[in-house]
Amino acid sequence: MNPNAALPTTLGFRPEARIRETLPTGLASLDQLIDGFPRGAISEIIGPESSGRATVIHSLLAASTTKYEICAYVDTDDSFDPVSAAAAGVALSQLLWIRCGHNAGHAHKAADALLHAGGFGVVVLDLCQITSRIANRIPISYWYRFRRAIENTPTILALVEKEPLAKSCASLMLEMKRKKAVWKGAPGFELLRGVELEASARKPVRPATANFQAKAI
């Protein structure tokens, strides 16, 4: 008997890493860093306020709607701004906006219904403004359920939050950092021209960082 024939059933066997299709965001330096957001998987974007989480999400939604896909934004704290999303190139008519009125439980149920319905390009679950007390109460089974619902579909589930929540269920974890705001003009007559942002990949780990600038509206 060929000993190699038994290899796939042994405990030491590791299947080949699955090559997933990705969706580039259109931000050149970020796409160079992470090769786009993996489809059929959970991606987490973490960082503090003003670190560019929403900017990356808007770019991702714009890239998806440009490909004629229907997207959904599950807005836990009613914080979504359609004006800046439209400025970033998101086709608003292709975006389903679900306002959950500060209720994380409702947001998870809505996201669950959307993911199981299928057919969406990107589903964003915005948990940026929930408190850490509520974040710690979210059952971990939700993330496994979400991962299972999308694993063989082209849907990207993007979680936006302060701290990682899906952890091992996420295929991509992008950490955003504040860099600096770009002001122009003499003191007292300054104008906000843009924001410089920095992104680093925590999963899969990449040594480099991506720096890019977003224009102010």
Partner: peptide
């Protein structure tokens, strides 16, 4: 939601209400 005409994407800082 319905498919409509495309808009060119651009990098604008997002606002969060």
């Amino acid at each position: 939601p319905q498919i409509t005409t495309l808009q060119p994407p651009s990098t604008h800082a997002a606002f969060r209400h």
